[in-house]
Nucleic acid binder design. Structure first.
Lengths: 360, 360
DNA sequence: TTGTAGGCGTTATCAC
DNA sequence: GTGATAACGCCTACAA
């Protein structure tokens, strides 16, 4: 910074002001400084800035299973939206264990980032509050009963209901939901977990159609992974309970595609013998053979809503403008409106995309 | 840190030493300090550490198109391996433009990270050197003629040759390679680009089989994306040049799966009418119907080799041990061997996985 | 084996 | 509108 100051014939403080677009600096001076910085390949040191001001201009995304289509497409959408708002995105994988989630939050995200987007796996809301160090955080698909943070959710209930309704509409007599166990109905987490809310949606659709529901309408999956999902198809075909199943709703596209592969292993035709619906709307679902009907979450809308919330909180924290005065289109939803302190809870746009797997 | 020092009854310096496992501190003292830190939820501030020592304990992965299966599976593998070695992984998406790649390197990766793993799109090796600020970097699939950095590559030539050979072996009379254009042979970048090297492998296989090659053996693709790949299938079927094509090698699995979808749109059967081979070995390839024969890159091996190189360079930079004395299994390949200064160039393990798409 | 002191590159608070 | 100066929290000679 000293070098730039010298080259531009000003003091270091002036360089700092000019580079961050402080209006106090004369336009001509600022331009001269910017050019000097450019020529010297100068870039402000993030560590120093963060140490001194507590702001880094970085927003972090921490997500489970970066190698699966849905999380990776979601991270990509978040990254794009973060960059569009003049922040630097970083993505981190929370590979399952609770300790790992905690470590990521402690060691990098909460320290380095001005705000975080987190898809909680194991950590509770209360623990998160302690780990957040007071930094703004928006949670994804967090359904805890009394939320501590803003959150944006996928349309678990409505989406699942639409999926099951669609199967019934096309004439399925025995619809099976792959993922949750029937016993879950007894669970007190029905309202506070993603599975529970999706199951609730399914039940609503069954009820509206006048379908009586029992254990034979659910095929539980220990892990929502490709291998168990593929094997679940064998279980469906081998068990008497599901013998007349003619429609299946899988709780994620990845499950649906693996399940479909399992059906293909046994020569069962989709949609002729069994119709199939997924959830997420990953790219893959469009290119599968047959292409997969699915409840598509609008990831761009999800990202937009998430960042609306997060950036409002970040600005509320300091009561000022963003760190990068040059970058922003500055549409921080709701200018001038005081941001409410109570955690907000939004739902991303979605649609039922009808494709070959339910074409009859 | 002062609080921890007070709680443990030592000075701040002692806390710093103890927490990083400096052998000078007595084991009992160190333990006492660790417990105090734990109780107070103390974590060293990365910004301050990085500012003072130049080391952050973070390794960055910068990669193109985080929302595609191959890059996302690769990032996940890298993240796991980075964590396994006691560093914190962060992933960034370089969404295409050269400016974006530069910005990512300038603004965060090169500043914040002790080392970087980069899959270069538009930026030249020389530009990278300037942007790296002397920090170690390992490139992925960088084939520049005189490399500046270590790199780890996929088996472009051998893998492609194996793919084409396999198609010929199962009896294909007219093999078409989807991706590069025949004109590329005239290009001087044959040896220094991924496409070029994969094409070279194809040509070798053709030659070894005594097959004469012309433009009808190549179906060029403007962008290696699903939509153009799907349409490429229509082009193949509609053009007289490819009328008798009975085997297709696609340069990535994503292309192959989209291409296969295009064939299905026209009712062409795989493998009966046309056999198909992909490249990468993404999870999706195993669950496609029919499952896809592919040249699978061993991502764990790729990650291992990449981090062997990178961590050796990081340690050479400071001539010491890793930042986290507790974390490492410490198998930094080749103990005691002086690390050569010349850029290394390694190739990841791979295998041809034969599946239904070439079963005849 | 432990304590002391100075500085890493910024930004914020003052004067001017 | 600009310049001097003191922190931010940590690391590391060096002294004890």
């Amino acid at each position: 910074m000293s070098d730039v100051a010298k080259a531009a014939g000003v003091s270091r403080a002036t360089v700092s002001y000019a580079l961050r677009g402080d209006p106090r600096i004369a336009a001509a001076t600022a331009e001269k400084i910017r050019q000097a910085a450019q020529k010297l390949h100068y870039n402000a040191n993030i560590s120093a800035r963060s140490l001194r001001s507590g702001r880094s201009g970085i927003i972090g995304v921490a997500i489970y299973e970066l190698d699966r289509p849905y999380p990776s497409e979601m991270s990509a959408a978040m990254s794009r939206e973060i960059a569009r708002r003049g922040y630097q995105p970083i993505v981190q994988q929370t590979s399952g264990s609770k300790d790992d989630e905690i470590m990521i939050l402690q060691k990098v995200t909460s320290q380095l980032c001005d705000g975080m987007i987190f898809s909680p796996g194991q950590v509770s809301d209360e623990e998160l509050r302690a780990l957040s160090h007071g930094k703004p955080m928006v949670l994804l698909d967090d359904i805890s009963p009394d939320p501590v943070f803003d959150s944006v959710n996928t349309a678990c209930e409505d989406g699942s209901a639409a999926a099951v309704r669609h199967l019934i509409d096309i004439g399925c007599k025995h619809v099976v939901v792959v993922g949750p166990s029937y016993d879950m109905l007894l669970d007190d987490k029905m309202a506070s977990s993603v599975v529970g809310r999706r199951m609730t949606g399914c039940l609503r659709a069954f009820e509206e159609a006048g379908v009586d529901v029992d254990a034979s309408n659910f095929l539980p999956l220990e892990h929502w992974d490709p291998i168990p999902a593929r094997e679940a198809a064998y279980r469906l075909l081998d068990s008497d309970d599901y013998r007349d199943a003619d429609g299946v709703f899988c709780m994620t596209d990845t499950i649906a595609i693996s399940f479909m592969r399992g059906l293909a292993d046994r020569g069962v035709r989709v949609p002729d013998d069994i119709a199939l619906v997924g959830f997420d709307g990953v790219t893959e679902s469009e290119y599968a053979v047959p292409s997969l009907t699915t409840v598509r979450t609008d990831l761009d809308d999800l990202a937009r809503r998430t960042l609306d919330l997060l950036i409002d909180r970040i600005n509320a924290n300091v009561g000022g403008a963003g760190i990068d005065a040059t970058g922003g289109t500055g549409d921080n939803a709701g200018d001038g409106l005081a941001f409410p302190d109570a955690p907000q809870r939004l739902t991303a746009a979605w649609e039922l995309v009808k494709r070959e797997s339910t074409r009859r």
